[in-house]
Amino acid sequence: MVKVDVEYCGRCNFEWHCKMLSAFLQEKQPGTEVTCHVGRQGSFEVKINEDLVHSKIQTLAFPDHQSVLENVQKAEKGLPVDKVKEQPIENCIIM
């Protein structure tokens, strides 16, 4: 089973982004275990089986859901994962 761990900023109200990603992955790749938890300010960090594949803190963008799915599918096959593609940020800028 592939595990996806998402750390998100609660202050920035990024929980819904995590819920959307989780629903997308559950629909497209049933059985994927997705955990969402509150973390650092401005964060939306995505790990697949402990490998960091996306960092909003570094990129200032959210991950592309399709790109996360492709990496989940790679991990399920035992292949190495890559950094995911990004979507532009819509709100909450770190100052």
Rank of each mutant, 00 (worst) to 15 (best):
Q87C: 08
H17D: 04
A61T: 14
P30L: 04
T32F: 08
V4N: 01
N13T: 08
Q41H: 14
G10Y: 06
K28P: 02
E15P: 00
Q29H: 06
E27I: 00
L69K: 04
E50C: 12
V68G: 10
F14A: 03
R40F: 08
V6T: 03
F14P: 01
H37W: 15
L79H: 14
E15C: 02
N13Y: 09
Q58L: 13
M95W: 03
T32Q: 11
V6K: 04
N91I: 02
L60R: 14
H37G: 06
G42D: 02
P80T: 10
Q73L: 06
C92M: 03
K3Q: 10
Q73G: 01
G10I: 01
T35I: 13
T32K: 04
G31I: 00
L21R: 02
P88T: 09
Q26G: 06
P88E: 13
Q66A: 15
V34T: 00
T32Y: 06
R11F: 05
K47G: 00
G42E: 04
V4A: 04
R40I: 05
D64P: 05
A61E: 11
W16A: 09
Q87T: 11
E86Q: 01
Y8H: 06
H54S: 14
E45V: 12
E90C: 04
V38H: 08
E90W: 10
M95E: 08
K28T: 00
S22Q: 09
V53E: 14
S55V: 11
K77Y: 05
K47W: 15
I57L: 15
Q26A: 14
V46C: 08
V46A: 07
V84H: 14
K83I: 09
K19D: 10
P80R: 12
T35H: 15
L25P: 13
M95F: 13
K19M: 13
T35S: 15
